[in-house]
Amino acid sequence: MGKIQIDSLHPNNVLEVKNLNVWYNNSGIFNSNSRLKSKIQVLYDLSFSIAHGEILGLVGESGCGKSTLAKAICGIIRNYKGEILHSGGIPQMIFQDPLGSLNPAKSIGWIVEEPLRLKGELDASSRKRRVDEMLERVGLGSQFAGRKPHELSGGQRQRVSIATSLICHPRLILADEPVSSLDVTIQSQILDLLMELGKEFQLSYLFISHDINVIYQICDRMMVMQKGEIIEEGDVAELFDNPSKEYTKRLLYKE
């Protein structure tokens, strides 16, 4: 494979992924079994882009590599082949389990403030102000700053996650099943909040879900993933009306 040519990002895009391949290493001195493959490929040659303000849905059954893709995009997984280009800072991620994504030993205020603290641009009092504004904006109110994650409900925790991911004003949010663990009524509240904030902050989303209804409700475009490959991609409405692959049909109309 030749040297990958580094192109600059198209001005309309916040993210471009080109020929992305990811392997998981199964190594270690004592568990290297020659019969097992020590390198397992999880993503095969993915290429796609997300435009400014676009909401791209990603569907596929569990274990097909959706979360791996998100982790590669935001830099948790570093050893990949291919290119990931993004504009405007590192994309932030919203996780499925809102309790696991909040540090149980810290207060809500501390958690939301941490990205600002790491950035190190603002002093303590203006950070506090930003945190209070942000908590207010996601519908929690500044009185939540002193509470601990386990004192909150699932929906409230997900609001905290959203506040944390937005506080440094990223351009792209990777939402990995952000509403799957919530009640249906809370689900729609959180989705509405994500849509509102998306307009307000001019965000793009990569929205990962196994729930076709959620994708249909909010996404502009969608990709279908199977076993680490993107098998189909297109406008949500078109894809729903006219899926070409058997797998997509099964996924869309299994209910």
Binding site: M93, D97, S101
Partner: peptide, 13 residues
């Protein structure tokens, strides 16, 4: 392996 550690990494800790 908990998500809040991933999330701290993404923030740049």
């Amino acid at each position: 392996e908990l998500d809040f550690v991933h999330s701290a990494k993404i923030m740049g800790a």
